[in-house]
Design a protein around this nucleic acid. Structure first.
Lengths: 338, 338
DNA sequence: CTGAAAGCGCTTACAG
DNA sequence: CTGAAAGCGCTTACAG
């Protein structure tokens, strides 16, 4: 492979000059224009690309950023990962991926691993369900960190998340506006701030409409959601829900299954709306109404924050808006396949 | 941070000895047992972890492996990525992720990028749809490579893939055994070997059963699959299909939508089976029969191959079996929610 | 504006 | 079995 020395020789300068021309130091070193041109020429001719290993060792930064995700198989995270990856690439950074499989001990392991790998920063998604003890463990990590999702307690790291409360308000208001009066919220575990915020948004909208709140907390799995909703729909004093706002699309699909198994027509007997807008939502029959979150942008913003952090600039927590997607499961057929 | 020098001083040895104890060289250098113990003790006490940057520079290997995926948002690839990541971690390797978004030019860019990053090897998934020209471009990449999925033409790199032909045979045979006589294959683009192999397996099984083959080729998107299947079902000489074998679950979900929109009952009027077993398949109503592929293992085996390659051992192409999952969309209700 | 030189933290022949 | 030393390919004060 070709090294900085080869380029220096070809351009008739020292390796220091080559480095100055080819490496964008934070405070740029002046180089004469024609010298710089000669260097760039030589580099191009030799097809030189500096070794990130050597550069990292000398400059004490690896150009690597670590991305911790709770579960790559959950359709939510690949979108975030794609956003992180794309923006990182634009910033000449590479992304090391770490999959904790939902186990918090693995998160700790990975933090050490990434630290040992000398990553420049860590983007931690799934921090929405960490408890106080676990968040304290995080403190021992010396690497700059950005969180995706709002952590349960106040921490020193900046975070970017979507406005779950507002998204849930939109979903609930949509049901109300379509004439629904008994809206059940099929919630996820409130130990996750995401789920808690969605439940809060549901309550906001229910109160504004002067209706009665009726929330069922599940563990977030479709299986558990199915069971709990089935039980809730068993007769008990005539109070029959006419709509379900599920905290996630996976729970909404469980709700659709409950409706199908009880021969309830969707949306006339029971309207169903989810949250997330997974790729399949529009393909189902009935197609699933939901709230779309800008998952890709979540990842991109996280990288922006990482860069601002590195530059010593102040970083504000950021909240991104979610968007209502009204489909057949709340308003019936009408559009074409899309 | 603590360096190898700190450990050497603490243990009363030279840094060479520390390196020999702590770094598993290919051909291990002898060290006296008690010396080794002293070193390990010191390292533990100081919480030393060697810099991958320095190690990589000196030993000319980065401990990084590049993973190229066509589309992280496609539910298939995160599972592969998870398998790669997990096995890599066991092997002390880190995974750099590269998302080509289905654009082949981006693949070329990424190859150069990963090469510049000095990755030890590249795992390339999505090579099933590369044409001869693109495969030639790949040759210019000097990094050892392992492919996931069978490439269209013979190449120098080993690959691991699932037995798509056999899986398609299983799916089709399942329909035949359940009394279906007119089975349509809703195929994906045959430029992808995956899709071509599934179509071949379909034909195998159809011929064995002495039935007539009836394949519709789509571009693989649910939208296109929907349109083409709709058109196929429009009356033309009384030949009404009683079953669809879709090349992917996404196409199968489009087939379910067609059935719903034409008021065809699944499975009595039309049985539907897919391929892939995406996480939602079991949650749909009717739940989707499909063929499960060991995507996670695909990734793990790829890393095994990388290691064998690095050790100079011979590497055989590997074929993993897929498994039939019979659910409501072919055999009707009967089981409970699962 | 340019260069000589020290140093980043390791590995690995070479010599003993 | 152990160590002194060269070297991996860069960056960056320091001096001019």
């Amino acid at each position: 492979v070709v090294t900085i020395g080869d380029v220096a020789r070809a351009a008739g300068v020292s390796i220091a000059t080559v480095s100055r021309v080819l490496s964008p130091a934070t405070v740029p070193h002046p180089v004469r224009a024609d010298t710089a041109e000669r260097v760039r020429d030589a580099a191009r001719r030799l097809n030189f690309s500096p070794s990130p290993l050597a550069r990292g060792l000398a400059a004490r930064r690896s150009g690597l950023i670590g991305l911790i995700v709770p579960d790559l198989a959950d359709p939510h995270y690949p979108h975030i990962a794609a956003g992180v990856e794309e923006r990182a690439r634009e910033a000449q950074l590479s992304v090391l991926i770490a999959n904790t499989l939902g186990e918090h001990e693995r998160m700790t392991e990975y933090l050490q691993f990434l630290e040992a790998r000398r990553v420049d920063a860590i983007v931690l998604s799934g921090a929405t369900s960490l408890n106080a003890v676990e968040l304290v463990t995080l403190q021992s990590c010396a690497v700059p960190m950005v969180l995706i999702g709002r952590p349960a307690i106040r921490v020193q790291w900046p975070h970017v998340s979507i406005d779950n409360r507002d998204g849930a308000r939109q979903a609930t208001r949509h049901l109300v506006q379509n004439g629904r009066r008994h809206i059940v919220h099929l919630a996820g575990p409130r130990t996750q701030t995401t789920m808690a915020d969605r439940a809060t948004g549901y309550r906001d909208a229910i109160q504004s409409a002067h209706l009665a709140a009726d929330a069922i907390e599940s563990d977030g799995s479709p299986e558990d959601g199915y069971e709990r909703l089935q039980r809730r729909l068993d007769p008990r004093g005539g109070q029959t829900p006419d709509a379900v706002f599920a905290a996630t699309d996976r729970l909404a699909i469980a709700a659709l299954a409950v409706a199908a198994d009880r021969h309830l027509h969707v949306p006339s007997d029971l309207a169903v709306i989810g949250f997330d807008d997974i790729p399949l939502a529009a393909l189902l029959r009935p197609s699933l109404s939901t709230v779309a979150q800008p998952a890709h942008e979540l990842g991109a913003v996280a990288i922006d924050m990482v860069q601002r952090l590195a530059a010593g600039q102040p970083v504000q927590p950021t909240l991104l808006k979610a968007r209502l997607m009204a489909r057949e499961s709340t308003i019936g057929p009408g559009g074409r396949y899309s």
